[in-house]
Amino acid sequence: MSQITALVTGSSRGIGAAIAAQLRARGLSVIGHASRAVDDATIGADLTDPTAPARIWEQALERGGGRIDVLVNNAGLFAANPLALSDIAWLDNWEDTLRINLTAAAELSRYAVKHWLDRGAAGRIVHVASRAGYRGDSPDHWHYAAAKGGMIAMHKTIARQYANKGIMSYAICPGFTDTAMAGDYLASRGGPALLADIPLGRVASPDEIATIATFCALDAPESMTGAVLDANGASYVR
């Protein structure tokens, strides 16, 4: 069997780095992505640029010898957008977050689905969404919750439409995770006091989320396509 190739966005740190490491440990060829290239295995592209997803996909295909088997939509932006900002500043922040967290993921998913349909090949997409897509988020993070809710709806649509073509879609909804992206937010919300809302008593680790992502990419049964896996320490139970 030929080597499986995966494209992982936002792979330079946090959850993305942990996913890339675990996939490589399972023998996959992993093509990473970050805002700036950090090594030869990483494609550098700023997802606020509307042309970035197409360039990422084209470069990934070139590096993968014309084949991508797994797409992990992990790249994300989590930045406050207070209501008191000016109208234009609030809208700019909204659009940047939606473009990075949802639109770029949608574009890459589209390229992946078309690639697999054209080749008559099976493929898997793993979407790293968020608890916020179901529970909502803080008053400063409407945009983040909206983007992740959109990602979940997109994932379910992909799963329903393409399962009979061998194209599987899985989504993960972490709660707070110990990453640089969430660090400032945790501090601003009271740090240890915030843990009172998490029955487990701690936030997730990137490796825990990566374990779920690796399972979805490689081991999850096809009958699980369309599933949303929660990882929030029972802070939001559906």
Score class of each variant (00 low, 15 high):
P174L: 09
S109V: 02
T51Y: 15
G66M: 03
A52H: 09
P174A: 10
G190S: 12
M181K: 10
R160Y: 02
A112P: 11
G166M: 09
L28S: 05
Y162W: 02
I15G: 00
R99G: 06
I31R: 13
A210G: 14
Q161P: 01
I43G: 08
R160A: 04
P82W: 11
W116H: 14
L194N: 03
A79K: 07
T177S: 09
F78A: 06
H155K: 00
L47Y: 10
P50V: 12
I100D: 04
F176L: 05
A231V: 04
L186S: 14
W142S: 04
S235N: 06
S12F: 13
W90I: 14
L186G: 14
G175M: 03
R119I: 12
G120D: 12
A163N: 01
M224S: 14
V237M: 15
I158E: 05
D197A: 07
R55M: 05
S2R: 11
Y185N: 07
L186A: 15
I31G: 14
A45E: 15
V126Q: 04
R24W: 13
T177Q: 08
S2I: 08
V38N: 02
A6E: 13
I167L: 04
G191P: 12
D49M: 15
G175P: 01
N93S: 13
A145Q: 00
D69H: 10
A45H: 14
L98A: 11
S223L: 08
D118C: 12
M154Q: 00
H141C: 00
R135H: 01
P192Q: 06
K165S: 06
A204S: 10
I43D: 09
G44T: 11
T177Y: 07
V203S: 11
Y236I: 03
C216S: 12
D87P: 08
A37D: 04
T103D: 08
R202K: 09
L108P: 01
S223Q: 09
A45Y: 14
A106F: 02
A132M: 02
A227G: 06
A204K: 05
I198C: 06
V30Q: 09
A220I: 05
G10R: 04
T42L: 10
G64P: 02
T5Y: 11
V128H: 03
L108M: 03
A220F: 05
A20M: 06
P82K: 14
P53L: 07
P174R: 10
N81T: 12
N73G: 02
K156A: 02
G27P: 08
R189C: 04
R67C: 13
Q59C: 13
I198S: 06
R119T: 12
I15F: 02
T51C: 15
A122T: 15
E222L: 08
